[in-house]
Nucleic acid binder design. Structure first.
Lengths: 263, 263
DNA sequence: CGAGTAATTGAGTAAGGTCAATTCTTGTGG
DNA sequence: CCACAAGAATTGACCTTACTCAATTACTCG
């Protein structure tokens, strides 16, 4: 459930004194160039903080939202659902990711968002985001591009599901998560806290939790990864990436042409 | 290969006298409201026509493009690829669909586009599209929204792949195609020309062509669909949709809230 | 008419699912 | 600090769906 939504508006400082929006802005800047003024406009967006417990849908399927959700801490899954009720996770959002920026242009959701672990969110009203986009074509473009990258990742997952077996899929996901978590913890690029259960992994990979377990088992036995509690450590990255057929460009986590093209 | 690209620029008339961009504009207007002036701006975008033969990649993986491709006739598939070379189709574009509007903001492609049947394309330069978006926030928003709908469809396909068996997936795809083709041929909502082979269907559904064949076979035997040549006819739509768990809202083919919200 | 592609069909195999039981963890209250 | 309950991970036995390999039968288009 919602735990005491903190209704403070305006810039919210982290313990470190930076805005909670800073990591998100950093993410945007990785992919798009923005002037100082534009950056300020984004950092000054009004924000409402909220805590969400594990396994809570904080955005429900078919609901109409008036705000977008930035993940500050925890993990969020974007769910799709079969009429029979089977759920499939179609995207994973980590701290610094805006889980549903696209809801700005499609406020009637086509998906559900669920906290896969205890999560802290920053909610930003659609109208503020819309206005920012209207005032600055560069911001509009950055938002659009962000959505395209999001879609690009979904497409990769789709390829995995369609054409890779369980072991390859698992390896691919671990490589992706390592790369994404490394953004925030560059010192330990080969380990991260996997905040999700094997059941949830199954919902991501299109497998059963039993098979996920066996798959992790073989990766472990092969000396590719290690688990200690939630902590995942990649032992043999080369081999893991080879199995996965992983190459990180689709994550668009480094500056490239596109960032300079924007107008 | 490319067959004599017709280098005419400016408004290209169809036999009927309408611009080739008209169907695309119509698609946009389904989802976003645009002023008459904005509509004209879009219709006046410069266009280069091109013919592509079957099984030709006209956009290659990792290439940098400077134009977006509108499908005028035929079918286009968006491909993802495993390092081993297995291909998976992640999206299907029918006449009236812009296959890679997203390339405007991400010109280095992360995908390949292939003609799945003989196809006519209208290529529109990125800079013209960019300028249109910069000049009008409503157009920028419409483009963004279009991309979000595209992603929404991919997400559905992903759910299918992860959580539906072969029969359900096949049924779901046929329902989707019927709905999308019905836009252009409203008189025959229950039939359409399936311009793709069973091998290609397999690449869409994450199956082998053998299994696709058997799956179609059972749908046929169950009296749900009929094939005569390329022509597919849905006999029992209710039952087919029930098997698929299909509900068309994710295609965003009818006017709804979103269209009125835009600024 | 014949080549080449696409669709079918059969037989045997394997990856992953199902069902069910057992063992860890972890958080909680006393 | 300990006992317990609830959720997570693990493991075994067996089953089903979809894959592989291979051969045969349509189609389609010069």
């Amino acid at each position: 459930m919602w735990r005491s939504p903190d209704r403070t508006r305006g810039i919210i400082a982290l313990p470190s004194g930076r805005s909670v929006l800073q990591p998100w802005l950093q993410r945007l800047l990785l992919r798009s160039a923005l002037t100082e003024q534009e950056q300020c406009a984004l950092l000054e967006l009004p924000v409402t903080m909220a805590q969400v417990d594990v396994n809570r849908d904080f955005v429900k399927l078919g609901q109409v939202t008036d705000h977008a959700c930035l993940v500050v801490e925890g993990v969020v899954g974007r769910f799709g659902q079969t009429r029979k009720g089977d759920r499939q996770i179609t995207a994973l959002y980590l701290p610094g990711d805006m889980a549903d920026l696209h809801s700005v242009v499609l406020p009637r959701t086509d998906w559900a968002l669920q906290a896969l672990a205890a999560t802290t969110l920053a909610r930003i009203p659609h109208d503020a985001l819309s206005k920012a986009a209207e005032r600055s074509p560069a911001i509009a473009r950055a938002f659009w591009r962000d959505g395209v990258v999001d879609a690009s990742i979904i497409a990769r997952w789709h390829v995995s599901l369609g054409r890779r077996d369980a072991k390859e899929r698992m390896a691919h996901l671990l490589c992706e998560l390592a790369a994404r978590y490394a953004l925030q913890a560059p010192d330990t690029p080969d380990e991260f806290d996997l905040l999700i259960t094997q059941v949830q992994l199954a919902d991501i990979l299109g497998l059963t939790s039993v098979h996920v377990n066996r798959t992790i088992g073989t990766l472990r036995k092969d000396g590719l990864i290690m688990f200690s509690g939630r902590r995942v450590r990649i032992i043999d990255r080369k081999a893991l990436e080879a199995i996965a057929g992983f190459e990180r460009s689709y994550l668009h986590l480094e500056h490239h042409d596109a960032a300079r093209h924007q107008g």
